[in-house]
Design a protein around this nucleic acid. Structure first.
Lengths: 146, 146
DNA sequence: TAATAAAAAGACATCAATGTCTTTAATGGG
DNA sequence: CCCATTAAAGACATTGATGTCTTTTTATTA
């Protein structure tokens, strides 16, 4: 419900990379997938898209891997949502009506708009950096337990 | 996003039946699917489950069809959500963590709880009857435009 | 009782999300 | 330059949601 597995995987992956590579080192896909208990090859596809979007960087070859860049911490969660859920997910009517809008609303339109706007607000104001600030020592583990 | 097509189809189907059969007549699957522009056989499966759950009634044979019963108008939307989305949709963590909870929360746990509780509240207090009260003459059409 | 009309049940098809494996490209280290 | 290591790309498999069709069951009605 609400969001796909891909979104959860993507966000946890980015948080892991952001947290673990501040010192300039890199983390390999094996390490990320292993720690987070996410299917390796599936996470690979997702992180490639995340990297293509510029949210993190990657390099090939020995001692290569994924690592933060100067955009990572400032990235809105919404960017990751749009990357994994597609851009029109917030536009869809809960009753599957294509032409549902404020002028011709379905019986649930206004209430659902409130919820959607709350989600949009949350994901717009919250960045990767924000989620990392609550710097408890168990943070990385909290992403892994599964 | 948020909910499946099945949920939208189910709710629109129930609303249509509730609105059109108050006089004691019945509506056929063909009529419902035709008016609402919902794939006929798919809607059939959904309405059978809705009827098995007691939310509406049905009868076979000539001049048979679907029709309201004494529980229809008082049915919480949540009942239909649980029927179509499964019971644990509100329990899932947005990061796909199985052991995410208030004591060991993921970085988004508390914010997402708010949204989920808002949805739960909305679908708990709202009944089929509530949605039918806003009795504009175009109500049935507003379910059909697609 | 026979014909018919409707839901119910079940088989099958399609599609998108998820998951796995193999091959290719890049790159750092020897 | 060669090798090992890593991400990237692409082929394929699995699964669940959605969609379609056929057969069966039930009940009305002529």
């Amino acid at each position: 419900m609400i969001f796909s597995k891909s979104f959860g995987y993507a966000l946890r992956g980015v948080l892991y990379v952001a947290r673990e590579t501040r010192s300039g080192k890199k983390v390999s896909l094996d390490e990320i997938a292993g720690h987070l208990r996410i299917p390796r090859y599936f996470l690979a596809k997702i992180l490639v898209r995340v990297a293509k979007a510029g949210i993190i960087d990657s390099s090939k070859g020995p001692s290569g891997g994924f690592f933060v860049n100067n955009k990572t911490l400032g990235t809105q969660l919404l960017t990751i949502v749009l990357l994994t859920e597609g851009t029109d997910q917030f536009k869809l009517c809960v009753l599957q009506l294509r032409k549902c809008n404020a002028r011709k609303p379905c019986p649930l339109h206004h209430q659902m708009e409130k919820v959607k706007n709350q989600l949009l607000e949350l994901f717009s104001v919250t960045t990767i950096g924000d989620l990392l600030k609550r710097d408890d020592p168990d943070f990385i583990n909290s992403l892994a337990i599964n």
